[in-house]
C-alpha cells in the first residue's frame, strides 16, 4: 500500500491542501477503518490521502449545543458519541452506535466517515437521517453550505460532496419538546456484533401528553441504494394516538416503510428476507 499523505493541522492548511490537489486524485482519511481495507482490496494509483486525524478545529472534533441544535463534528469518534451527555436523549443514535462494529473500531471510526462512506448499511448515518439531521459542508473557499441528510446520499458510496468540499459537521435540530419518546435502532444481522446490517430501521417518534404523535422520523438501511427517510410512514403516524394504534394501523405503517425498500439479493441475504424482516420489525416498534 503506497500513497502520499498530507496532514493539515489547521483549517487553513486543510483548505490549502484541498485547493492544491484539485487536479490530482485524493481521498480523505480520518479513522481509516473503511479506507485501509478498501485500499487493501484495490489500491488506487497515484493516490494522495489528506489525513484529517491531526486537524485541530473544534468544529470538526467536538460535539456541542448551539442555538439551532446539537452539532456533531465530522471527526467525532463513535465512542465520543456514546459518552456525550447531550446525545443520550436520542436512543436511536446511541443504539445505532452501540450496534456499530466493535469497541476497538468505535474508538477510531468517525461520524463523518460513516456518512461520507455513504454505505446503504451505515448504522449511524441511518439514525441521523431519522433524526432529521443536516450536513454542514465546508467548501475550499472557506464557506459553509448545508444539505439535509435526506438529500446527502446520491447512491451507493456517493454523496452530494464535490471534489472541493468536505463534511465539517452534522446538526441535529432541536426537537419539539415531547412528553414521550419512542426511539431506537434495530439492526438485523446474523450475529450480535461486527455485523453489516442486512436491514435496519431507525426511529424517533415523539408524543404529547395525550399520546398524540407530534413528530416522527424513521429511516431504513440496507434495503435500497442509499439510506432512505421513510417520509410517508412518518406522515402516516403524525396526529395519531400512539396508544390506540390498531393492528391495521401498524401494518399500514409497515407497508409505508416498505415503499422505500427496494432490496437486492446478495451473499448476505435475499431480497425476500430483507423485505419480510423489515416489515416485521417496522410493525413491531409500534
Amino acid at each position: 500500500m503506497d500513497f502520499r499523505t498530507i496532514s493539515p493541522q489547521t483549517t487553513e492548511e486543510l483548505l490549502e491542501a484541498i485547493k492544491q490537489n484539485q487536479g490530482k486524485h485524493f481521498r480523505f482519511g480520518a479513522g481509516y477503518t473503511d479506507l485501509i481495507p478498501e485500499l487493501e482490496m484495490q489500491m488506487e494509483n497515484g493516490l494522495i490521502v489528506i489525513n484529517l486525524a491531526k486537524l485541530k478545529d473544534s468544529n470538526f472534533t467536538s460535539i456541542f449545543l448551539s442555538e439551532d441544535g446539537i452539532r456533531i463534528g465530522a471527526l467525532t469518534t463513535m465512542t465520543d458519541v456514546l459518552s456525550n451527555k447531550h446525545l443520550q436523549k436520542f436512543p436511536v443514535l446511541i443504539e445505532a452506535v452501540e450496534s456499530f462494529a466493535s469497541v476497538q473500531i468505535r474508538s477510531v471510526a468517525t461520524v463523518g466517515g460513516n456518512l461520507c462512506t455513504a454505505s446503504p448499511a451505515g448504522d449511524v448515518s441511518c439514525a441521523l437521517v431519522a433524526l432529521g439531521a443536516v450536513s454542514e459542508i465546508l467548501i475550499a473557499n472557506g464557506q459553509i453550505r448545508t444539505v439535509p441528510l435526506t438529500e446527502f446520499f446520491t447512491g451507493v458510496k456517493t454523496t452530494v460532496l464535490k471534489k472541493n468540499e468536505l463534511l465539517r459537521s452534522v446538526l441535529i435540530p432541536h426537537q419539539k419538546s415531547a412528553e414521550r419518546i419512542l426511539s431506537g435502532f434495530i439492526k438485523i444481522g446474523n450475529r450480535n456484533s461486527m455485523e453489516i446490517a442486512l436491514a435496519s430501521l431507525a426511529y424517533h417518534i415523539t408524543t404529547d401528553k395525550n399520546g398524540i404523535i407530534t413528530s416522527a422520523g424513521t429511516a431504513v438501511g440496507s434495503v435500497a441504494e442509499t439510506i432512505r427517510y421513510t417520509e410517508s410512514a412518518c406522515e402516516f403516524l403524525l396526529g395519531k394516538n400512539m396508544d390506540q394504534l390498531s393492528e391495521e394501523d401498524k401494518e399500514t405503517f409497515a407497508d409505508n416503510v416498505l415503499k422505500y425498500a427496494n432490496p437486492i439479493s446478495d451473499i448476505r441475504a435475499s431480497a425476500w428476507y430483507r423485505h419480510q424482516v423489515l416489515w416485521n420489525i417496522s410493525k413491531s416498534i409500534l
Partner: peptide, 8 residues
C-alpha cells in the same frame, strides 16, 4: 462476510 461468532 464469513461470520465466526463474536464475544457477544
Amino acid at each position: 462476510d464469513y461470520k465466526v461468532p463474536t464475544a457477544r
